[in-house]
């Protein structure tokens, strides 16, 4: 049945958003259908596949298990927010080089999980990468090239020494 609407004020990829959402609207649906940020994909709607992963206040989060109203007051980054208009970021470049995507549907979630991980811990080892990425399902690649890509992208996330 129709539910009441709520105001939600948050930031997506550095831009302020002030919208009305139904109580039951998930953040993934809000991003995709209300804000038309369709880079975030929805693969299972029950929090297992990880395709909808976005970054909220620095943490990788399932946007399908988050209600849009819960985003009120937060800072959100989606795949569009970590992409350049032209060219690719080092993480994306590594994905391309290692053929870490085929159909590309899980890719935004993979990138967001990897981005959050490498931002927090650019020295993470292969086992650590596998552990964290095991929350994102890919049906095409068998994961091996994805792990190689994330390993290679670590360098770009390391802070310069003496900084």
């Amino acid at each position: 049945m129709p539910t009441s609407k709520h105001r939600a004020v948050f930031e997506v990829n550095g831009k302020a958003v002030d919208i009305e959402v139904e109580s039951r609207t998930t953040l993934s649906d809000c991003l995709r259908h209300q804000l038309r940020l369709t880079g975030t994909h929805v693969g299972c709607e029950h929090g297992v596949c990880g395709a909808c992963t976005i970054i909220i206040d620095g943490a990788a989060v399932r946007s399908c298990l988050t209600l849009a109203v819960q985003a009120d007051g937060s800072q959100i980054t989606t795949v569009e927010g970590i992409s350049f208009d032209e060219g690719l970021t080092p993480l994306q470049t590594a994905f391309r080089k290692h053929h870490a995507l085929q159909c590309g549907f899980c890719t935004p979630g993979m990138l967001m999980t990897a981005h959050a991980l490498l931002t927090e811990n650019p020295d993470v080892d292969e086992e650590g990468i596998r552990h964290v990425l095991s929350g994102n399902i890919c049906r095409c690649t068998g994961y091996i090239p994805i792990i190689q890509a994330v390993l290679e992208a670590r360098a770009a996330y390391k802070k310069p020494e003496n900084a």
Partner: peptide, 19 residues
């Protein structure tokens, strides 16, 4: 050859049917 498809798909610019 690195894939031509990747430039869109890696930047969230794919056009899947629900998009």
């Amino acid at each position: 050859v690195e894939r031509l498809e990747d430039l869109r798909l890696l930047r969230g610019r794919g056009r899947f049917v629900d998009d």
